[in-house]
Every structure is written in structure tokens, then in C-alpha cells.
Design a protein around this nucleic acid. Structure first.
Lengths: 334, 334
DNA sequence: TTCTCTTGACGAAACGTTTAGCTAATCGTT
DNA sequence: AACGATTAGCTAAACGTTTCGTCAAGAGAA
């Protein structure tokens, strides 16, 4: 592949001039610049980012580490981060942790190896796992998003998960339900504990003590939630409403509803955290709590930009507000 | 950040020995190797991929260029490519073209700049656009997937789109529908023309001449398909079945069905190309044609691996078979 | 005229690796 | 004992950029 040397020879200038023409760092006469550009075009020259990164110590790469791209919440986050990064002339490199805290450590090291200018991680682990993250990053800027507890020594961006659960639960109760069931997420995760807390606190505020058989736990994935949903729907004292803690488990619960031959919201009301494109395609369309995904992406990249620019401020935390998207999956109990 | 020099000093060996310990290229005594590893661990050393790539001329980066990550078909493709790439010690770097052929050219150049070992592109353009792609790639291996016409001078991986449309259409007709409507994709795209062709050919084989007002075209996106779906459902001679050409448009059509207050499959049967996780959560669950996404990812990476290894064979094409996933969204007409 | 400044371009060192070529030590043959 | 082979490790030269310091030519001042 053509190098600056080739370009320089063809344009009859020095390598330094080619570099200057491209970077615009120092002045080059219009005449020479034109010759250089013509040579670049003719040779199809593309500057070697490895060489330039090595010499300059700067990198256009942004690492993005998350548990699983196929979850629409993560998908949308990747989309937003990539769009904003590209607009800033940066390129996203992907690491998938598969919900495994140990591979997160490896992936951070991988990003370090590629000399990513900074990395955004969506941790999958417990608080203990998360607090080790900063140590792996060494001097690479690292910001934790979504499942990020406080006090882990990193800039963090989170949604107000308690509020999100409250919004959904209040909405359910506003239809006059005497109580509600929950399909919660794994208890070691910060986000699911927060959502669980928000749910319970809301019931409590309404003077409701939920039945223990209505408090179920999933693993944030489809199959388990479907099983749990079936159990819930098969109960003698079947709940009249269910709060589901994330989108994957909502798939499972909706599948359970279909299998049980029940109708939403006639037989059962449903509200979940995580909005997603398909929610409008259901009949009735599904009521969800929308996470401010793009704002989270923007905040994360903002932190990264500051750190890349050299900020040594104390780690900060941004908490963003969710938004209830009312559709038709909740109604008064029969 | 620590370099090999630091490691070498701490371990009391030369840089070359550190390099050898890591690469395993030449023999290093167990004793020294251990000292080196200990030093690496102590310093948290992560080898500089830019330096190593520059010197060796090899890269662990794989470029992946696609129109839009949020479409579940692409999402799953990213997932599968990334998983297989990671298993092979490679890292995926992302380029999103936003359905714009001009930005595809830029993104290919970007991947060249990063010295990606090879790049997979899912072109969004017309045949004319696609045939220019090979020129942009210069000497970087490039394979085109999905919307890839023949004869563009690149290794290509496609699904048999005609067959996919046939499968769905035959399934619809097997319930005794007299005809069917189609919501087709944009006509400049190879894939949508193929699907359209498969649909029409199947009707023809059954001696059916479709009504022109039942032949609609969307743009592979939600809103337009919803509008088109509403038109179709509002027709005096409303179709009894609709074939939808991709998953995004299926969202739109399902939304239209919900708005129109119709019931699937009682009032209307629906089958679409592209399976997706939510299909099972609908009641009734949606019948779709599944693309062999993981096999496509494997084939694309296979081509890339061969080219990276230096193969100069003629460009090849692999066409994979789709699979009909029968669920409950099709039934006999009323 | 001579000196200093400015301007536009260049030469060369350095970034952190890989790797070819070398050296010194060890070993088995003869 | 002397020889080449083999082995374990080292030295140093790249890779393709960026960037600092240099330089020649011309302008302005003394």
C-alpha cells in the first residue's frame, strides 16, 4: 500500500510536506498542497493510522464493551455511541463480554493494547466486580454506564432506575389494581436491585404488601422469564398486573401470555422497563419506560472527551431521568 | 504506559527476549519467560498493537460496514461476526453507512487507514454502487454480504432471496388464499428485487395475477410501511394475506393492523422475511423466513481469512438457503 | 553592504515493536 | 583437543508517521 514516501516522490516534495498538507498543522503553499492532494488521489493513499498513532501518541479508537449487542437497549446504545463518535472523527471498536466479569477484564486490556483513546464499559457484574474495573484501565480513560454502582472510582452514567420502576408501578396502580407482580432481574446487579427497590417502595407508599408468590426473579433473559411468567399466570390468585424489569424478560412474559391464551390488558396489565422499536407493533401496543439512551451515550462520550483532554477531576456521576411511554397494555382489573 | 523496554529492564533481559516470550516465535528458557511474565504482570504491561502492527504489517482489526445496527438482522450479523472474530483473536471495528453509498466509500478508506486485515461490507446501494466497491478497497480484502449483486469483483455471501420469498408466499397460498399482497422493498436494491421476483413467480406458478393495488413498495423502514399497510387494509377489496419483504416493514405493517383494529390471522394472514427475537412474543406468534445469519457470518469470515492468507483466486459467491419458520400468523381466509 | 526576521520547505530523530543476523556458550563427534 | 552444530539470548535495523530544529531565500532595517 502506498506510503507518504510514495506520495512525496510523486508530488516532488518531502515527506514532511505531505504530512503538513494533511494535518494542516503548519503552512504549506497552495501550489504544493494541490500537487500533494493530486498525488494522494492518484495513488489512493490512505495514511497509516498505526504509524501516526504510534508516533503522535494519539488514537482515534474508542473502545465499547458491553454484555450482548442483541439486546435492543444495548443495540441502541451502540448505535448512538457510534454515531456520535463518528461525528467526532473517532472509530468504535467492539468488545462483547457475554455477561462475564472475567472477560471484561480481558477486554479492557484488549482496548489498552489497541491504545484506544478511551473506553466505555457497560459492566455486567456485581458491585464487587465493578469496583475492580478502574484498576484494569491503568491510564486509559474508562467510563462505566448503566449497571454502574457508586464509588467504583470511575466516571459513571446511569439512569434513575428507582424512578423508572416507580413510574411503571404508579402507572399500573393508577388503574386501580389492588397489587402487582414483579419479574425482577438478577439480584447481584445494581440496576435490578434498584428497580426492585423502586417497585416495592411504590407499593409500600400505597399501603400494599405484595404477596411473596407474586415476587419473582428472572435473569434478564427470555427463557427464564417465560417460565416465570407461566408460573405467575398459572397461580390460583393470578396477579392482575405485572411489572417486568427489562425488555428481554418482557419477550418471555409476553410469550407466556400468548401460550396461556390470555389477553392483554383485559386479563392482565403489563408494563416494563426498556422501550424498543417493536413495542408499537403489538396489539395492544406495550407501555414501557424509556431509558434516555442517546443522552447516556452523549454523557459517556463527554466524560471520555474530558479525560482524553487530560482532566484529572474526581470521578463524577450523571444520573438521567427515564420517561414513561404510555400505550395500551395497562387497564383496570376485571 | 509501560513499554517492552520497561519490562525488559525490570526482568533483566533484552527487549527481544520480551517479544519472544510473548509471541512464542523463538525459544526462551522457562526461567526467563517466567521473569518476563512476572514483570509484565507487575507493570500491567499491554503490548502496543499499533507498534506491533506497524512493524509486522499484520493487523488484528476486522472492519465491519453496515447500513444500520438497530435493524435486528444487522444486529444479529454484527453479533455473529464479532463472536467469531473474537474467537479468532480479532477485533471488530464498526462503520455505519446510514444507507448512503457515498459514506460507504469513505468508510472503506477509513478501514484501510486503520489497516484492517480485512473488511466485511453490507452494501446499501444499487448494483452500480456495489460495482465500485472493489476499487475503493485497493489491496485490503473486502467481502460483500447480503445486498450483493453478482459480478462486482468481490467475494460475496448472500441468502437465496428468491427462495425466501417463495417459501413465504407458498406458505400463505397453502391456506387457500386466492391471492396475496406484497409490501416490497426499494427497487434499486438487489435483495428487494429478488424477493419481489420470488413473490411474483410463485403467484404466477399458481396461475394468479396479483392486483396492482395489492403490490406496494416500502423503503425497508417502519413509517413508510405503516402508511402503506394502512392503505392496503383500507382498500375496498382488502387482501386476505400480506407478504412483507423485511423485518422493519413488518413492524410498520403490524402497527397498521393494530391501528386498523384488525386481528391476525383471522382478518388477515401475514408472513415476512427476517426472523427476530420478538416474533415469538406476539399473539399469534409471527411466521417468518429466517436468514442463515450465522452461516453468512462464517462464510464471510472464511473468505476474509483466505484472502488475508494471500489467496488470489477469482472472486467467489456463496448463496445460502433460508428457512421458513412456521408460527401462527397465517390461516385460511374467512 | 550587512544583519536580522520571516517564510516555506526539508532532514532526521523518535515512537514501540518485530525480526534478521550475530555472539557466546554448550554439546556431541571425531 | 579441536571441530562444527545447536542453543539462548542479544544488537540493531527497520516499519510509516509526526515534529523539532535547520536552512535557504527574500524582505526590511541599520
Amino acid at each position: 500500500m502506498a506510503t507518504m514516501k510514495d506520495v512525496a516522490r510523486l508530488a516532488g516534495v518531502s515527506i514532511a510536506t505531505v504530512s503538513a498538507s494533511l494535518s494542516g498543522a503548519s503552512f504549506v503553499s497552495p501550489e504544493l498542497k494541490e500537487r500533494v492532494l493530486a498525488a494522494i488521489d492518484e495513488l489512493g493513499f490512505a495514511p497509516n493510522a498505526m504509524a501516526s498513532g504510534l508516533k503522535s501518541g494519539k488514537s482515534a479508537l474508542i473502545g465499547l464493551i458491553l454484555p450482548d449487542i442483541t439486546n435492543p437497549f444495548y443495540t441502541q446504545f451502540v448505535h448512538d455511541v457510534q454515531r456520535r463518535a463518528a461525528a467526532a472523527g473517532r472509530t468504535v471498536i467492539l468488545g462483547v463480554s457475554d455477561d462475564d466479569a472475567r472477560s471484561e477484564a480481558k477486554l479492557i486490556r484488549l482496548m489498552r493494547s489497541h491504545r484506544a483513546a478511551g473506553t466505555i464499559i457497560l459492566p455486567s457484574g456485581s458491585e464487587g466486580d465493578c469496583s475492580k474495573l478502574a484498576g484494569y484501565a491503568d491510564d486509559m480513560p474508562l467510563v462505566a454506564v448503566d449497571n454502574a454502582p457508586t464509588g467504583i472510582g470511575l466516571d459513571t452514567v446511569v439512569m434513575d432506575n428507582r424512578l423508572a420502576a416507580e413510574l411503571a408501578t404508579e402507572h399500573i396502580l393508577s388503574f386501580g389494581h389492588q397489587s402487582a407482580a414483579i419479574v425482577a432481574g438478577p439480584s447481584h446487579r445494581f440496576v435490578s436491585r434498584e428497580r426492585h427497590y423502586g417497585f416495592e417502595a411504590t407499593l409500600e407508599r400505597h399501603g400494599i404488601t405484595p404477596l411473596t408468590e407474586h415476587m419473582r426473579r428472572g435473569d434478564f433473559h427470555v427463557e427464564e422469564a417465560c417460565k416465570v411468567g407461566l408460573e405467575l399466570l398459572g397461580l390460583a390468585n393470578r396477579p392482575t398486573a405485572i411489572f417486568v424489569s427489562n425488555n428481554q424478560m418482557l419477550i418471555g412474559v409476553m410469550q407466556a401470555v400468548a401460550v396461556a391464551g390470555l389477553s392483554v390488558p383485559r386479563d392482565i396489565s403489563i408494563a416494563a422497563i426498556d422501550d424498543f422499536p417493536w413495542a408499537v407493533a403489538f396489539s395492544p401496543a406495550l407501555t414501557t419506560v424509556r431509558q434516555p439512551i442517546d443522552a447516556m451515550a452523549a454523557a459517556a462520550l463527554g466524560f471520555l472527551t474530558d479525560r482524553i483532554a487530560g482532566s484529572t477531576a474526581e470521578p463524577q456521576r450523571i444520573m438521567l431521568r427515564p420517561e414513561l411511554v404510555v400505550r395500551q397494555s395497562c387497564a383496570p382489573p376485571r
